[in-house]
Simulated scan of single mutants.
Amino acid sequence: MYKRVRRRKVAEINVVPYIDVMLVLLIIFMVTAPLITQGVKVNLPKADAEALDKESKPPLVASVDADGNYYLAVGTSKNEPMSAEQVATLVAAHLKVEPDTPVVVNGDGAVSYDAVIQLMVLLQQKAGVPSVGLMTDPGAK
């Protein structure tokens, strides 16, 4: 006679369909993520900024005027217009001598946002400034 062989039941979950769904969702999120991160026009809130301590060193003020000219001032001194490379070189030299000096950017209200950002990138990448502050008008509300 024949012996009957009993098979054991296997308790496994087939995960292949779940992997397919996960890959489809991954592709959908990869396609839609750049669309979500696009800029949106908003009205920014107005707030009072804290002033630098009076006991701290006078800051290096890198400025951009409405014509796109660059200036560099220490404290209240004023300089002539200079190139972006000259600003970076002077800031880097000053920070080698006095590394704790704060650096702030003063952008004219009529200058483009791009010009202010380019000055900040220049100060961080070429001059090695660890953090750049933005100047505001204390009377503006």
Rank of each mutant, 00 (worst) to 15 (best):
K41I: 06
L52Y: 08
P59K: 08
T89E: 15
S83G: 15
A110Q: 13
V103P: 00
T37D: 09
V121D: 12
A47W: 11
L44E: 12
L44D: 09
R8S: 14
K41L: 09
E80T: 14
M120F: 02
T101F: 02
A33E: 06
D20L: 15
G39D: 07
A110V: 05
Y70W: 10
E80G: 04
D137T: 07
V15W: 15
E50S: 14
V42M: 13
T37N: 11
K3L: 12
D65T: 03
P81E: 05
G109H: 04
L23E: 07
K96N: 07
L23W: 09
T89I: 09
P34N: 01
E55L: 08
L119G: 02
V97W: 01
D100P: 00
E50K: 15
Q124P: 00
V87P: 04
D114E: 13
Y113E: 12
L95P: 05
V24T: 11
P45T: 07
K96C: 04
G133R: 05
P102H: 10
M22D: 02
S83Y: 06
G107Q: 11
P99C: 08
G133K: 05
A66H: 08
A88P: 03
G109W: 00
Q86I: 11
S63C: 03
E80A: 12
G75I: 05
M135N: 08
N69L: 06
P45V: 05
D137C: 01
V42R: 13
M120N: 15
A33G: 07
V64P: 00
